[in-house]
Design a protein around this nucleic acid. Sequence first.
DNA 1: GTTAGCACTCAGAACGTTTGAGTGCTAACA
DNA 2: TGTTAGCACTCAAACGTTCTGAGTGCTAAC
Lengths: 351, 351
Amino acid sequence: MELSERRQRILAAIVEQFIASGEPVGSKALCNLFEMSISSATIRNEMAALAELGLIEQPHTSAGRIPSHLGYRYYVDHLMNCQALGTKQRRALEESMSAHSGDPEQILEQAGELLAEITNCAAVSTTPTDESAVIRKVDLLPMGGRTIMLVLVTSNGVVRSRGCRLAEPVTPELIETFYAITEHTFLGQPVANVNLVLIKRLTPLLGDNAPLMQQILIALSELAWDAAKEEILLEGQTNLLHHREFGNNAYELLEFLGRGEPMSQLLSTASSPLRVIIGRETPFHELENSSLIVARYTISGRRGGVLGIIGPTRIDYAKLIPNVEYLTKLVGRLLGEVLGEEGTDIGPGTE
Amino acid sequence: MELSERRQRILAAIVEQFIASGEPVGSKALCNLFEMSISSATIRNEMAALAELGLIEQPHTSAGRIPSHLGYRYYVDHLMNCQALGTKQRRALEESMSAHSGDPEQILEQAGELLAEITNCAAVSTTPTDESAVIRKVDLLPMGGRTIMLVLVTSNGVVRSRGCRLAEPVTPELIETFYAITEHTFLGQPVANVNLVLIKRLTPLLGDNAPLMQQILIALSELAWDAAKEEILLEGQTNLLHHREFGNNAYELLEFLGRGEPMSQLLSTASSPLRVIIGRETPFHELENSSLIVARYTISGRRGGVLGIIGPTRIDYAKLIPNVEYLTKLVGRLLGEVLGEEGTDIGPGTE
DNA sequence: GTTAGCACTCAGAACGTTTGAGTGCTAACA
DNA sequence: TGTTAGCACTCAAACGTTCTGAGTGCTAAC
């Protein structure tokens, strides 16, 4: 869609005014903004044209105009003046993230909280899901009686555990056998490979304790599945209640976010470094009035997860995009520091 | 406070009617309820007396009455007809909890979700904090380069991990020394004991690698602190948006719940098996219009955490209390199964 | 292509009226 | 002394009316 220079200026002004004030923007207000270089009548003509193109809308006859989803899209793609963060702001973000616990999920949580606070939106992030992640460690801890605890650690820093009540008491031999199997079957194995098929194949090797051992291995495979699964972290959902555009429908949105799977689906499509999704561009009607700004972080050059924000369509894209962008890079760096730099040892990443 | 039989019946009727309808209850409505055994004028007289005692209130002159916090309290303490769950309902709860992952936190999460769904309130729970919990296992995993990962497992099923970038590359000797120290100093030690004081005392024993080892041990102590710390899990917060009494102040409440510490403080006082906290009975003005029903679960006779719900003061106490009560017992039992029954081996719990 | 002017529209505020549920009080009654 | 019918009173909420002003679209002149 080609727009004349003047129409672009008018559209940009409408979007920016509306983002700043939340009120529909009238021709007179724009006229003042352009310092009388054109009259309000001319602007009205141009606005009629923009409305024709579907870039702006009128809530009702006697109101000003507001950007449509298409209008926002055009603004984000062509008009927005999006400047990189200043050193001061970058420092501030680094500062806020410097005191982290070292736990990958906690780092993501912290970044989400920070992002939510800065943007006054909800923050969303996903744990790293890297198909090349392998099992680093498996522990079996007898907890007394017939219960054990399994702990699984992956090479990308995911730790999962579960207790498990067995049919019979645990014996030292059982544990020994388990560690033997683990040693030459599971360690170094891609997490996603530890599934029931693999377990089944081991059955002939289990000997005396087969049924009991099988129970444990099934539990382990469930644990591996859990570890491979992407997890969605949400922070600052309550911020969304501030935005009057959600009004009393905030429940629907929050409930949608809490559901997880659709979000997961949506975020998985964010392959490019940064993605802006506006309103109806998603198939989910719950997000009709929302925008997402999400970016994918990489850990030592390898695919990580995503980090971003969800807010009303009326958010300050130009200001928030650089924040999401930088914080995502920062998170990737921190996770790299915490999880080691195997990626660089192995060679350049696949992407 | 002594109330005549009749006043008790009237108060109970007001509370129950109001809980059911959400509308102030008038004398005429009550009159119908009592099937004309007394007239509305008499009821008005009695209501005036109850209002005098502070048990009911009038939103405005020409409205019916609603229970005050004191009124709810009196109802919960003396009038409520709270029946234990039927076998069918108990089965349903057991059913819903039967497919659990075995991870203590996930079990609590699941119970919270269930409770939130049943009650249409927010559910809150805390991880078990048992001072007698000891360290069961510590793992140090080199992650390549100068980074390591520490994993800590406690006897009450809490698992915490963190990555850590060291000043120098890790050597096999370092790891060996670490495990030696762990073996005779940390394992079996109460989690709360692993603090900087203990670390300091170890310094002379560290030999060559003292500075590096110290860095690791400090990280470990932070991890232990994290593991000992009670964690608050919230589920179904969005349910609170359904209750019109919160209206547009839901934000304040949700924000308060998200803050954590005050809740932690409040819940820690719930020592008795079941506690009902109504409106202004807490010091927190954010909870002014909310009620809590919380119960403490025990794991194999030992102190666990709490599980309960948060809703408006206008909730169906008689119906929800048995649910919270039973689900709490169920969670305690499940955690006992998953974490082993050491408690019974050691002897009867301290409480 | 631009602009001034003007009639028109319509949401939202302001104001008054009506309605009805519910009360408190009083006086009569059991 | 406790209970009841009757009645005047109150007041939130619903409804209707009017007013206001921001903003528009259209037209005719520049």
